[in-house]
Amino acid sequence: MQATSESGGGLSPIVKTVARWMAGFILVFGLSVVLYGHLTPGGGFAGGVVLSAAFILVVLSHGRREVLQILSERAPTIYDGLAALAFLLLAVLGYAAGGFFLNFLPKGQPFQLWSGGIIPLCNLAIGVKVGACLFGVFAALAVFRHLHQRSA
């Protein structure tokens, strides 16, 4: 484990395959936590953390070198910024209906998936932001740091 993570080579094919399979399930679970955030425990932040965990799992199992070939350094930052802007846009759109952060969409019936006005949309924006941001932090500390490392 120590040797492989130092060289960034990744783990054995069994672990890689299982991790790839698991990542899909984790993504779906994260999305459901985000989308049902206004009805059940969870929401944007918790779901976003789960989403980022799926990506982190893949990076951990496949190792730095393999990941660097497909991962763009700027993607997490861009998704992070755009999701934050989307959240802010929802807040500012409230002005059209009368006020900052006003819940301007129809509220619907309680306990339905399509209810709560702008809250599910806010959750979605937060979920993407948190997922991108946490993965970005992880990638910056664990993957890209080795690219930019200057001599001490």
Binding site: F45, L134, V137, A140, L141, R145, Q149, R150, A152
Partner: peptide
């Protein structure tokens, strides 16, 4: 917790950079 997470990410990055410099 979210704020703490942000602080923690930053402080970890700082500590790693310090480790790079001083060993």
């Amino acid at each position: 917790i979210v704020i703490g997470l942000g602080t923690l990410a930053l402080v970890t990055a700082l500590a790693l950079r310090l480790y790079d410099r001083y060993g």
